[in-house]
């Protein structure tokens, strides 16, 4: 399969993740959508790396995977903290800053 097929696959997964981020009401569900989107970006990087014959894209993917794990840990800690303070994880109910 050519580079185009991998890029289209990654774009499809990215858009599904975007749909999840936009439509989910639960904060953890939104985080799951973000994970899908970051995962699609990783597919892109590895595909470019494979088709150009260099390792740079794979090193970049290694970095993004580690940053994503940090992001998930901080995000879930924030969700737990949010739940402790507001007793809800629904994004609709978190409208403290709404005028």
């Amino acid at each position: 399969m050519g580079l185009q097929a991998y890029l289209i696959l990654a774009a499809t997964v990215f858009c599904i993740g975007l749909f999840g981020v936009v439509t989910r009401r639960n904060t953890i569900g939104i985080l799951l959508g973000i994970e899908l989107m970051l995962n699609a970006v990783n597919i892109n990087l590895v595909a470019f790396s494979h088709f150009s014959g260099t390792a740079t894209g794979m090193i970049f993917t290694l970095f993004t995977i580690c940053i994503t794990v940090s992001e998930a840990a901080i995000g879930l800690a924030l969700v737990i903290l949010l739940f402790r303070v507001r007793r809800t994880v629904m994004a609709d109910h978190l409208d403290l800053l709404k005028g």
Binding site: E35, L62, L76
Partner: peptide, 25 residues
Amino acid sequence: LNAEFLAAVQLLLYAGGIITVVVFA
């Protein structure tokens, strides 16, 4: 895509780490 090392990292960090943390949350 011939990225065996990244596949292993993906399974360990993502499928192992993140899923556990999310289920915990």
